[in-house]
Amino acid sequence: NQASVVANQLIPINTALTLVMMRSEVVTPVGIPAEDIPRLVSMQVNRAVPLGTTLMPDMVRGYA
């Protein structure tokens, strides 16, 4: 089972991601792999991401 990136807090739209906003968790469906967390830092979300939501590739500008 692969860990995915999950929002550690509410992340408002257009917010640049920081390490404290994300955690890794084994979830279904699988989202962005946890090993990509360092790559996600400073990328912006293109929608509001509620606490506990799995980050999907289409939620992060420039990721996919």
Rank of each mutant, 00 (worst) to 15 (best):
M22E: 02
G31R: 02
V60E: 02
V26N: 07
V26A: 09
L17M: 08
N1I: 15
P33F: 08
G52N: 13
M59W: 07
Q9S: 10
G62E: 12
T18N: 08
R61G: 15
P57W: 04
Q2G: 15
L17W: 00
M43F: 10
R39D: 03
G62C: 15
Q9D: 12
A7R: 00
A16V: 13
I11G: 01
P12W: 05
G62M: 07
V6F: 02
A64G: 12
R39K: 12
A7W: 02
N8H: 13
R39M: 09
V60D: 02
M21D: 06
L40M: 09
R47A: 14
V26C: 06
P50R: 13
P38Q: 11
P29M: 07
T15K: 08
A3V: 09
V26K: 03
P50G: 12
P29F: 05
T54H: 03
S42F: 09
I32L: 10
V5C: 06
L10R: 08
T54G: 03
M59S: 06
V30R: 03
L55E: 01
P50A: 13
S42M: 12
L10D: 12
N8G: 07
I13V: 11
L40H: 00
A64F: 03
D36C: 08
T54Q: 04
V27I: 12
G31C: 04
E25S: 06
I37K: 05
I13L: 07
V30E: 15
P33W: 13
G31F: 01
A34Y: 06
R23E: 05
I11R: 01
R23F: 05
P50F: 10
I32M: 03
D58S: 11
P12A: 09
D58M: 04
Q44K: 08
T18G: 06
N46L: 14
T54C: 05
S24I: 13
T28F: 06
R61L: 12
M22R: 00
P50S: 09
N1R: 03
V26M: 13
A48G: 08
M56Y: 07
T54L: 04
M59T: 05
V5W: 01
M21P: 02
L19P: 12
M22Q: 01
R23T: 09
L51G: 12
G52V: 02
A34H: 10
N8L: 05
R47F: 07
V49E: 01
V5T: 07
T28I: 07
V60G: 00
N8F: 05
I13F: 07
V5H: 01
I32A: 02
E35G: 05
V26F: 09
A48C: 05
Q2V: 12
R61A: 12
T15V: 10
A7C: 05
R47W: 11
P29Q: 10
R61K: 13
L17C: 02
S24P: 12
Q44C: 15
A64Y: 03
Q44S: 09
N8S: 15
Q9K: 08
L19H: 15
R47V: 13
G62P: 05
I13Q: 14
P29R: 03
V49D: 01
V27Y: 02
M43L: 09
S24D: 12
D58C: 15
P33E: 04
A34F: 08
N1G: 14
V20C: 15
G52H: 10
G31Q: 03
A3H: 11
N14Q: 07
T53D: 14
V5N: 00
V20E: 14
V45G: 01
V49G: 01
V30I: 10
T18M: 06
A3F: 09
V45E: 01
L55P: 01
N14H: 09
P50E: 15
V41K: 07
A3M: 11
S24M: 09
Q2A: 13
A64V: 10
Y63T: 04
V41Y: 04
N14Y: 08
G31D: 00
A48H: 14
S42C: 15
S24G: 14
V41L: 11
N1A: 15
S4M: 02
L19Y: 10
P33T: 13
P50M: 14
T15E: 07
S42D: 12
A16Q: 09
L19M: 15
T53F: 10
M43N: 06
L55F: 12
V6R: 03
R47S: 15
L55Y: 00
P57L: 04
N46Y: 12
A48Y: 08
I13S: 14
P38K: 14
Y63R: 04
A64Q: 10
L40Q: 00
E35I: 08
D58A: 12
M59N: 05
A64W: 03
R39C: 08
V30C: 12
Q2I: 08
D58K: 05
N1V: 15
P33G: 09
M21Q: 05
S4N: 01
S4L: 01
P50K: 12
T18I: 05
V60Y: 01
L10M: 11
T15G: 09
Y63N: 04
A3N: 06
V20H: 14
N14T: 04
G31P: 01
M21V: 05
L19E: 11
M43V: 04
M21G: 03
P57E: 08
L40D: 01
S42W: 11
A48S: 15
V60F: 03
I32C: 03
Q44T: 11
L17G: 01
L19S: 10
L55R: 00
S42I: 03
R23P: 02
P29N: 08
T54K: 04
A16D: 10
I13M: 12
I32H: 00
L51P: 14
V27L: 10
P12M: 14
M56H: 11
A64S: 11
I11Q: 01
E25Y: 04
S24L: 06
A48L: 10
A7V: 13
L17E: 02
I32N: 00
P38S: 11
E35F: 08
T15D: 04
N14S: 09
I32Q: 01
A16C: 14
R23C: 05
P57D: 09
R23D: 07
A48V: 15
N8P: 02
M56S: 14
V30W: 06
E35M: 08
A7H: 02
E25Q: 06
L51N: 06
N46E: 15
I37M: 14
M43T: 05
G62K: 04
A3W: 05
S24N: 09
T15Q: 11
Q9E: 11
T54M: 04
E25L: 03
Q9W: 13
V27F: 02
A16G: 07
I32S: 00
I13A: 12
N14G: 10
N46R: 09
S24E: 12
V49Q: 02
L17Y: 00
R61Q: 08
T54V: 11
V20G: 12
R39G: 06
N8Q: 09
P38W: 11
P33L: 13
N46K: 10
S4G: 07
P12I: 08
